[in-house]
Amino acid sequence: MADTSIQPGVAARSGRGWYKRNEIAVTPWLFLLPGVLFFAVYVIWPIFQSFQISLYEWDGLDRPVYVALEGAEITDAECDALGPRARGNPGCADSGTTASTAEYVGLDNYRELLGDRNFETSLWNNLKWLILYLLAIPAGLFIALFLNQTVFGIRLYKSMFFFPFVISQIVVGLVFSWFYRPDVGLLPPILAFFGLEGVNVLGDPTLATYGIIAAGLWPQTAYCMILYLTGLNAVDPEQVEAARLDGAKGHKMLWYVIIPQLKPATFIAFVVTIIGALRSFDLISIMTNGGPFGSTRVLSFYMFEKALSEYGFRMGYGAAIAVVLFIIMLFFIGYFLWSMYQDEKGR
C-alpha cells in the first residue's frame, strides 16, 4: 500500500474508466464501426446470399401464408395449400407473413451454365473487354505526357481532355450510338469521305462489342490521364536532371526514368481499368441492350437480363452468373491486394 502514495500516477490511471484506459486501441475501431457495419451488411452478406440463391430455382417472389382460424375445421396446412383461394374460405386468414417460393436445385444452375451459349458469348466478351480496355492505360499516359507542359491555357486543355470522365456513362453511350447510327450518324459520312463503305457498327454482331469498347475507352482514357498527370507532378526533377546529364533522351528517358517513377499511378490505373472492364454494364444497356441477338452481352448484363429485367424471373440462374463473375473478379482483386501487401511490407 505504501506504493500508492509513492506512485500516485498509477493509482489515478487505474482509477480511470475502461474506455480511458483502452482509448488508443478502441478509438480506431469506433471510427471504423459504421463503415465496417455497412460494408458487412450491404457487401459481404449479399455475396454469401448470392452463393445461397444460386442453389435455388426462384422467381424472386414471396407468397403470402394463410393460416386456419381458431376453432375452424380446416388445418393450417390445408389453408396454405389453397393459396389465394384461402381468402374465400371462412376458416382461413392471411397470417400477414410471407414465404419464399424458392426450390432447392443444388448445382443445376451451374450445370445449365456450362451448356448455355449465351453464357459462353458473355464470357468471351468479358475477355475482350478486359484486354482491349487496358489500351486506356498507354493512351492515358500518352495524353498525360502531351499535356504535361506549361503553355498558356493548359488548365483549360486538361479539363477538356478530362471532360468525358465527368459526364455520365449513359451520355457517353448515347453520344456514341448516335455517332454510329447508319441513317443520321457521323461515322458513315466520315467513312464515305475516305471512300469506305458505310458499316452499321452496332448492328453487326461481329463488330458491336468492339464499337462499345471504343466508346468505353473514351472516358477510361481520360481517367488514366488524370492519374498520370498527378503522377507526373510527383516525378523527381533531380533524377530527370541527372539522367539528362548522363545523356538520356526521348523514349529512353521515358522508359528508364519516368515510367518507373510512375509505378504507383500505373498500378492504380491498372486496378480501375480492370474493375471498370468487368463491371461494364451501362454502355451495353444503352447502346445495344445486349443485342444484336445477344452478341454484346457480358456477364453482368446477362445476370441482369436473367434475374431482374422485364423478362427475367430466374433469380437462381442470375445468382449463379453473379458467382462466376465474382470468382473472376476475386482473382484480380486477390492479386491487387497481394501486391499492395507486398508493397506495404517493403517499406
Partner: peptide, 11 residues
C-alpha cells in the same frame, strides 16, 4: 401469371 401463381394477385 408469375404473380397469380405466387398468390400475389387477388382472385
Amino acid at each position: 401469371r408469375p404473380y397469380v401463381d405466387a398468390g400475389l394477385f387477388m382472385d
